[in-house]
Nucleic acid binder design. Sequence first.
RNA 1: CGGGGCGUGGCUCAGCUUGGUAGAGCGUUGCGUUCGGGACGCAAAGGUCGGAGGUUCAAAUCCUCUCGCCCCGACCA
Length: 574
Amino acid sequence: MRLSQILISTLRDDPADAEIPSHRLLARAGFIVKIAAGVYTFAPLMWRVVKKFAEIVRQELDREGANEVMLPIIQPKELWVASGRWDRYVTDGIMFTLKDRKGSEMCLGPTHEEVMTTFVNAQVNSYKQLPVNCYQIQDKFRDEIRPRFGLMRGREFIMMDAYSFDCDVPALDVAYQKMRNAYCRIFERCGVAYTVVQADSGAIGGAGSEEFMVIADSGEDSILFCRESGYAANVEKAVSKLPAAPAGGEPKALEKHSTPDVRTVAQLEAFFPGWEASRMAKTVLYHVTWKAKTKVVAVMMRGDLEINEVKLANSLDAMTVRMATDDEIKAATGAETGFAGPVGLRDDVPLLADESLQGSTNLLTGCNEGGFHCLNVNLGRDCRMPSFKELRMARKGEGCPVSGKPLEQARGIEVGHIFKLGIKYSKAMGATFMDQAGKPVPFVMGCYGIGVSRTPAAAVEQSFDDKGIVWPASIAPFECVVAVLDNKRDEQNVLAEKLYAELRAAGVDVCLDDRPMSPGAKFKDHELMGMPVQVFVGRKAPEGGVEFLVRKGMQKSECAASEVKAKVLAVLGR
RNA sequence: CGGGGCGUGGCUCAGCUUGGUAGAGCGUUGCGUUCGGGACGCAAAGGUCGGAGGUUCAAAUCCUCUCGCCCCGACCA
């Protein structure tokens, strides 16, 4: 390709609305152009990047026997009602919905479990046709609460979504592992450093899931990991060895103390010298929403630990949880905020406690009376016995659940997510096949996603410098550019054309920069756009000399035109 | 949705406090000179100051409403 024929428009200034490096650089290099919040046009060079990444995804999925299909973006409401997800997605406001001329409700697909399950159910009737794995690469639509960071979180974005259908759980495990392997090859090939972490299943639901994370400071996810054991998990999912707390000893007599204006754990530590936070049990009131009801629930946690709201929602099988407001707390406990506790808690407020409190004695808690706290509270004696759950937020520095070594923390960008769904959707939607015994059995499903527009952005996030983008060669818009520095000089044009033809013949994805621009402007442009290998044909052209630049590291050298092909291939590892 | 910030030629911004006939740089167009680090000179085009209403002799500037965008929290590829 000749750059004079490609629509390229780099900006001299950073765009005002871009914050993180990938957004800033992709916008400045003219790769993406915003059309609305979270909605972008992909300019020619960006589209080349996306297509290259998509091709890697296709190759690796096809190697595992997956079928590429194309599902409709517009989906009828009925499908979502059948799976039971319409209400939740509409309530959350995540789904773009519309009505057709007859008034029938439709949505723009935020994900495709429903459509794919319907499709495969119609095609597959027998266990003999299994396993099946279908995927598509397509735009997804989600009315995100907060689109941000350019391509990182868009309202329209490109996603690869795959769905596996198997006859039983062991077969699902095989399908899952195949996809996991494919994912590893995909992210290795596109040159990003990534980590696989255990994850919460979230709104998609299902048994187990892992996320593929690109480690970057701008990542929206927090992960905990251990170099020793290889354990890694999203903080939402992570567990750790429980930090020790002093023993409470034999149960003592309950004491009630006046604690005016003492509300927080820190204030209590100051008020009761000798009582460490780990001997306290804080009680946090949560407003919990299920499909058909809402309720305020009391959650107890050891004073030095934090509640993990994802774990809380999961343990309650709730749609959403949020901390109760001051008014809700007063209505539920009768006391103002800061004095809630298990003692004297109304019977209609469910009481949960983290496992860290199991077996603890002589705790310090609130007692639902403004200005008072209790000492030596013993669960089951002075109050109801709570139902114990694993609700604790694991934190860095705490022991790895496998090795016991301190956990480390990092930020990550979720570029892929794989789930074992089980029969959640197939059962809800009545998607079955005939098993060997001739009985209808629901498909055992898995689903798998890759952010096809997000991954290149994540790659930029990991690979840039003060001059611009440094594309990994496998997803760069071009592997190599041959640039004419003064295109009024024939000897430069002739030599550049020759090199361009030679590199193309050698199978290099090369472009010729024949634009009539000053040399300085071309240098800046290619640094910004991040072409991996750059060959400049300039004043040494009459003697057959050119300049050779490897973008990563900015190593610049001069060489003879005759050496260019070999040098380019060497840099590209071919 | 809650909190904070911002909307002025294509882009980055100044002007607003203290109302008085819209500015700069970059980019764009033309001509000429250049041609190795976003070249230089000259000339030119381009803006209902996000929108609506109000106050005023007079509004980019003050007031009200509204729309859009960005950042921090709950969502996810």
